[in-house]
Design a protein around this nucleic acid. Structure first.
Lengths: 342, 342
DNA sequence: GAATCGCTTCAAACCGCTTTGGATGTTTGA
DNA sequence: TCAAACATCCAAAGCGGTTTGAAGCGATTC
């Protein structure tokens, strides 16, 4: 059943039927009701492929996921972000198309997406310093929103980010207020923009209190349980071990917790831990009472908002670049306490 | 730059240019080379939207992700599966479109995908017993492949699954061989098909050795760290605690491990643990030596294979339903050992 | 030398919708 | 009362490709 058939059946022209279904004003309300009823009755749905060709719009948004060397992106955070963004797209009748490509093909993929007309815009994930994708997308004229920011990029662009610097600064201050002075940072890979900002927040908070950051208390690695465990184990074996940790994620925090416990210390009493909690749907930080004290910011909500921003950019290409900074909340759990006296 | 313009520039008809680019035989090789060169030179790419309309094929595959009540699916396993499937699609110039919808809209989404022509086929995730989606998809005539199986479905359909029953049976036997007799199962939610099969394998192995399965040693819950921790903690507090655990995933295994350690027992000596390891890219079970003894099966590889199967089904709709059962390997790590003597 | 054939190429129809530019009949306003 | 304005509806031309049916043409066959 296509438009023409439906029109014939109704004794109307395709034009009128199309207009009736798309809510155009130049059609009699009685007629519109007839058309809508008939469409429902015959289970007629407009063919997406035809609409896309006729309107010149893809009604789709792309997410490019590079794999192989930089496999960091296929991570739990990504899944929740996608889920959030997907909700927005569904509500707005947009398709979400994911391209999983070897990272050396990333540029070609973006160019292809544009020239073949598969999508109307893209979300850029996991930006690094001076991320080349921003200039690329601007050059080829594909609307985009960055999830995060790319330090070093001169011209303004659309982004949505969590205030990572502030979050880690506050977390550090919170630990300082509890009397901790040897505070460790178990960070993500520091070519990622968010990791750089978190370190900055941590360092700023320390120096503001006259504490010189100690390089032996700063680790940077993938955000896995094992990496967290290793880094924390090594630090706890130092002559002057830290009394508190900042961990970059729930998972690395679990590694830190294991290190603390296998070192025979008690979490929240001997050693305090604060994690960053992305509020993942399948990895809750406790239920009533949070297990970990955490800087929390829902990555799923970020996905929803970033997608909304992108749809807005697509609808209004000439409006200036939008930017939005979300604040993380500091929630108190059971993993922090006053610094132990020595 | 579109086909017509390119054709004019070359002094050829659109027909010939189209055929040259698509590798049809009825075009002179010299001409083809001219065309291909010109296309590259003018950076011409065929417009996907036009191709889709003209050919009647969507060149896209759908993955429907229901959310809300059954949020279980937005999980880490899903992300890796998607990544694997995405690799296959990219290689074959197919798009992967994800629909994230409230689960009460799931049926409508599948119908829409079909009648609006957005996709040529779909992958069905996380099947339950008597999963209604299979009958639905057959009814509307949308090609599909199920990742997993749906016990209770009469007619044959396409699926790709891991032999969950056998995997858990072997794992249980392995523990029995080590002398364990009180073996606990920390399972996923048992309305999921894979969880049912795993329990069957576990129960079968026990009964085959004359051991009556003990209901107090079987838990079924979401596969989270906390759930694993809770279930294991409760069991370890029993008058006759288990000396070994089977955990349904890496994450719940981490919860079990924590329970073991906080009960003051040593993993691999006092208490043995076997997990099912989906070989997730960002959650490796150790590096050289696996931390956990595990039944391992790469879900990413499953994604690749399921996608290949689906593309094959789309290309040959009349071939019978394909089915493929993957075996998990049993890998020995550091979390298992002989049953302690009492 | 006419008929046939294979190799190339093309014109035109088509995919299923949107949208422009009327056409038609009805009101409205002076 | 007549022109202008309005309310509805339609024919036809796209959108950018694919595909069918036919034609041009030199070579081969009889």
């Amino acid at each position: 059943m296509n438009l023409k058939e439906l029109a014939t059946k109704l004794g109307l022209s395709p034009t009128t039927v199309s207009r009736a279904l798309n809510g155009y004003p130049e059609v009699n309300e009685t007629t519109r009701e007839r058309v809508v009823a008939a469409a429902k009755r015959h289970n007629y749905h407009q063919n997406t492929r035809a609409i896309r060709l006729a309107t010149g719009r893809a009604m789709a948004v792309g997410h490019v996921i590079p794999i192989a060397t930089r496999h960091e992106i296929v991570n739990p955070v990504f899944a929740d972000f996608i889920a959030g963004a997907g909700e927005t797209y569904s509500r707005n009748d947009y398709d979400m198309v994911l391209s999983v490509v070897p990272d050396e093909d990333e540029e070609a993929t973006y160019r292809g997406l544009k020239s073949k007309g598969n999508v109307d815009g893209v979300i850029v994930h996991a930006p690094r310093m001076n991320d080349p994708r921003i200039a690329l997308l601007r050059e080829i004229g594909l609307p985009f929103v960055v999830h995060g920011r790319a330090t070093g990029t001169a011209d303004p662009y659309c982004w949505l980010d969590v205030n990572n610097r502030r979050a880690f600064q506050r977390a550090t201050e919170f630990l300082l207020d509890l009397g901790h002075t040897r505070i460790a940072l178990v960070n993500g890979l520091e070519f990622m923009d968010f990791a750089i900002r978190r370190r900055t927040g941590y360092v700023d908070a320390l120096t503001a209190r006259g504490i010189t950051p100690d390089p032996t208390l700063m680790a940077s690695d993938e955000m896995t349980e094992i990496a967290g465990f290793r880094a924390a184990t090594a630090m706890l074996a130092l002559p002057q071990p830290p009394t508190a940790f900042l961990a970059s994620s729930m998972i690395s925090g679990m590694g830190v917790r294991r290190a603390v416990e296998s070192a025979g210390r008690v979490l929240g009493r001997d050693v305090s831990v604060i994690i960053h909690d992305d509020d993942l749907s399948y990895m809750k930080n406790g239920e009533d009472v949070p297990i970990f004290t955490a800087t929390r910011s829902s990555v799923r909500e970020a996905g929803r908002l970033a997608a909304e921003m992108l749809l807005d950019v697509i609808a209004h290409p000439d409006a200036g670049p939008q930017q939005r900074l979300l604040e993380a909340e500091l929630i108190i759990g059971q993993s922090t306490g006053p610094a132990p006296r020595n």
